[in-house]
Design a protein around this nucleic acid. Structure first.
Lengths: 267, 267
DNA sequence: TTGCTCCTCACGTCACGTGAGGTGGC
DNA sequence: TTGCTCCTCACGTCACGTGAGGTGGC
């Protein structure tokens, strides 16, 4: 006969676990001293302990093990339990595989949205290519731009091929009744109600990356128009704002880190 | 403002869950009526609820979510948490994949060990092929055969290519000092201490499948020797017992279902 | 006598679900 | 008045692990 400590060493089951299995009735000691309450186990019980360990290792619950011990006398009896368990485990694998791919996708989009712009944020003259653009145009206050992005985003869906941007058709700043179009570059022409999708002509633009909250954009506009006037260029229309980095998909983020590229067409 | 019931509908989180998230401090209502204790939520909280749901769906604990909400302000901040979570989830996938293959292996061996013998268990004359056999030979009582099987099994390992069997070199039944060899057919010749591995010649055998406990084998021996004598055949040596189905790898099984094939060589 | 092993409670875990018992507004 | 929603406890879950406090044999 082995004491519980010895039996624990042999079976690699903790003493606590053995006592628990006793309470649950799935692995009773072969003898219990009436005076001291000490538990003693026979060598023959090692096999049963190994069986229980094995069943636990393939995720059977204690109650399931009770059932198995009650209803199985022959190896072949357990196959039906094994098959059910196999289904459960496959379901878990599927579940975790799906989680993994969700995380992977999220990491990918977050990283794509956070490509670093290490420039020094100075005024530049750039040649910008033609792009296909799907936008929703409205007249109103700038703060209502959110709805237009929502409409355009829903229409463009998986064809979105670049950062959100908006076009400003007014040549001057307007608090109300501003003429704004908000949308996304897309990989192919789409057609949808309220959405105007067409090629936006590229060409020569004066650009500046603005860092910080949108409320401070006017300072960057001052700077860029100062450059245009200083260099005797003619500003065209519409001007663009490309939201290189704004609020994230999970967190609003720090507004001081927002990056917005202002693009003003010139001849 | 939404009541908890309305907010529950919108967010697909149960009322109980919302109360729990309030207790845990990860999603506080935007207003709590001091008199009634009623919770009210603003629409802006829907996003936060969605974020929490998403994090729960990829198996973050409430405490981890607390940490994330505390330390993340920008999407990029969460990537380190996601990477850690990815590792954990991959570990779980590995774990369950391993479980699945254990179950699969067990099912396979159990099924192989339980191939049905639907014969009527009558005496037959068979031609048996040559096999490679690895056995441990000893003199003693039959009940000590277990140790020989253990030695042979350990030596043969993954080369075991058939059911356990034993050879009886005595031409008569002996209680003590019986000359027995116990072992396994193997797929290639192996060499190991105490193990004799060689080709066992096949040929013509009189066979009978015995059903039931080993203690009743003598009845089947009577029957098979009756046949041999009745047909004026000459019994050779050694005779064989093939343990088609004995105790299982998990359960001892019902002895009444044990199947043992007796094979006696004849000219 | 000191350690070691053994014993029996009792409590904690994790993210809620399930009642029980009660209240206030429509 | 009746339903419905809302509230706050309190308890259960699952397989043990972690003490606390105590005993008997070497």
């Amino acid at each position: 006969l082995f004491t519980i400590g010895e039996f624990s060493m042999i079976t690699h089951l903790s003493v606590k676990t053995l006592r628990y299995y006793h309470d649950e009735g799935i692995l009773k000691p072969d003898y219990v001293d009436a005076d001291t309450g000490y538990r003693y186990y026979r060598e023959a019980s090692v096999d049963k302990a190994a069986l229980i360990s094995m069943l636990r290792s393939i995720d059977f619950s204690i109650n399931e093990i009770k059932e198995i011990l009650k209803s199985c006398t022959d190896d072949i009896d357990i196959t039906v339990f094994f098959e059910q368990q196999q289904d459960k485990i496959r379901a878990k694998i599927d579940k975790y595989v799906r989680m993994e791919s969700i995380i992977k996708e999220m990491l990918k989009t977050i990283r794509e949205n956070n490509m670093k712009y290490k420039d020094n944020y100075t005024v530049e003259i750039k040649d910008i290519d033609d792009i296909i653009f799907a936008g929703n145009r409205f007249k109103g206050e700038y703060k209502n731009v959110g709805n237009s992005f929502k409409l355009a985003g829903r229409a463009a869906g998986r064809f979105i091929a670049g950062k959100a941007m908006s076009l400003y058709y007014d040549r001057e700043y307007r608090e109300k009744d501003a003429d704004i179009e908000a949308g996304f570059p897309v990989s192919k022409t789409i057609s949808s109600e309220n959405i105007n999708c067409r090629v936006l002509k590229g060409g020569k633009f004066v650009t500046l990356i603005h860092r910080g909250p949108y409320g401070n954009l006017s300072r960057s506009y001052e700077k860029i128009f100062g450059f245009i006037n200083g260099n005797k260029l003619n500003a065209g229309s519409p001007s663009r704002e490309v939201y290189l980095k704004g609020p994230g998909i999970l967190f609003r983020g720090n507004q001081d880190k927002y990056l917005t590229e202002i693009q003003i067409p010139v001849e």
